[in-house]
Design a protein around this nucleic acid. Structure first.
Lengths: 216, 216
DNA sequence: AAGTCACACCGTACACGTACGGTAAAATTT
DNA sequence: AAATTTTACCGTACGTGTACGGTGTGACTT
């Protein structure tokens, strides 16, 4: 086997894939999110509709590729907005998260609100944390809060809790834009502060599989 | 105009609509959620596919009808699980909410995780609270907590905050079943307790449209 | 009672995602 | 060099949600 030829092949494939993603971006920019269809995308790059499936398993994978670009931007913004104070750094990350979700509802939906069907059984969650650089940043800032003593407990559990609250806020704001949450951004920040207060109240244990005690 | 005839008309229409919903339920039971298609549904009741649209504006409205039935059941269960202690009553409601969402992910999705496109501009949120009896129950139990002095502040704001946290937990568990949240039910309960701790820490102001102060 | 009208229902048609199978060229093996 | 396999792409076809325009039967008006 000629491995350099195989590598070149892979590279070319990646290039064409990138071209498709670029065309998809253009289509969305010109015709809106629901204007992105496989057929239009194929026409745009001069392929038959079915040829797109050589590069993406299904439409969801295309949407994911678009969303990943957007999420990379989120991570960039988070890193650019990093106050020294650990708590303020945490709030800054939340602020960027909120603006991202509220400003890119389509991308937010595809990543956080649609069923993940075909998932490789290996590397359940490390994968996701690696893929989503934003999550890494959150964990880093949680560690800073732990070091500063404003939070106590397991870093991953705390980060997951904060993510849960932020996601709950953003996703409800996206789904129910008419509901009187008040100013959207302010609502997310308020919920973030509430989560921080709750977390500061006690030491956060790690996440386990033991079913907790519950009434009834 | 003969109003009694018009009324009978409405009634018959409602009956046929109910028949369609029943057929939809049956279809889902027999062939699964994605087995529910307009064509199959129409065939089932002896109509042409397009005739279904005399009773539902679109497929989403059919899914909503199914979900509303399920949510009525949630409200029933909540009322049957009502400890005397206000905090335990709150936790019991959360427990039912969790079991409902985790046990009926499809219905949960259609109500809480899909865009609400065509929404009548009048009665923005009262409508929703009225339609979702479960929300009423939450507000009632919040009032009980306020009366008992374990929480302080605006009832609707507190209820919305608890909803946000519960929804964040449930929706993430649904969307990322592989992520190590630990035992799903336990995770929701833990997040609920965290929210209660955060809420207990200070008086919760009502929701307003003033943009809150934020870093950066 | 005659005329008008609303409405329940349907047939046709479109664009969509995508399953299936084919075909020809390129890469690899023999 | 010949044989084989792999690959890149495509044509056709199915089932989907639903827009559009009909059509006949009942109800309402006059």
């Amino acid at each position: 086997m000629s491995s350099s030829a195989a590598q070149r092949r892979e590279l070319q494939k990646a290039e064409l894939r990138a071209e498709l993603v670029a065309a998809a971006h253009a289509l969305v920019r010109e015709e809106g999110y629901e204007g992105l269809t496989i057929r239009k995308l194929a026409t745009r790059v001069g392929y038959a509709p079915m040829s797109v499936y050589s590069y993406f398993a299904d439409k969801q994978e295309i949407l994911m590729a678009l969303a990943e670009d957007a999420f990379a931007d989120l991570a960039r913004r988070m890193r650019q907005n990093q106050p020294e104070d650990p708590v303020e750094a945490m709030r800054a990350a939340l602020s960027e998260y909120a603006e991202f979700g509220l400003g890119n509802p389509n991308e937010y939906r595809t990543v956080f609100m649609t069923e993940k069907l075909k998932h490789p059984p290996e590397e359940t969650f490390d994968e996701m944390e690696r893929e989503n650089p934003a999550f890494q940043i959150i964990i880093e800032r949680v560690h800073a809060c732990l070091a500063a003593g404003v939070l106590k407990g397991d870093a991953r559990a705390i980060a997951t809790a904060l993510w849960t609250v932020a996601h709950g806020s953003v996703s409800l704001l996206i789904t129910f834009p008419f509901y009187p949450f008040g100013d959207p951004k302010a609502y997310v920040m308020r919920m973030g502060d509430l989560a921080m207060a709750g977390l500061a109240a006690s030491e956060t244990p790690p996440l386990t599989d033991e079913p907790g005690k519950c009434p009834g």
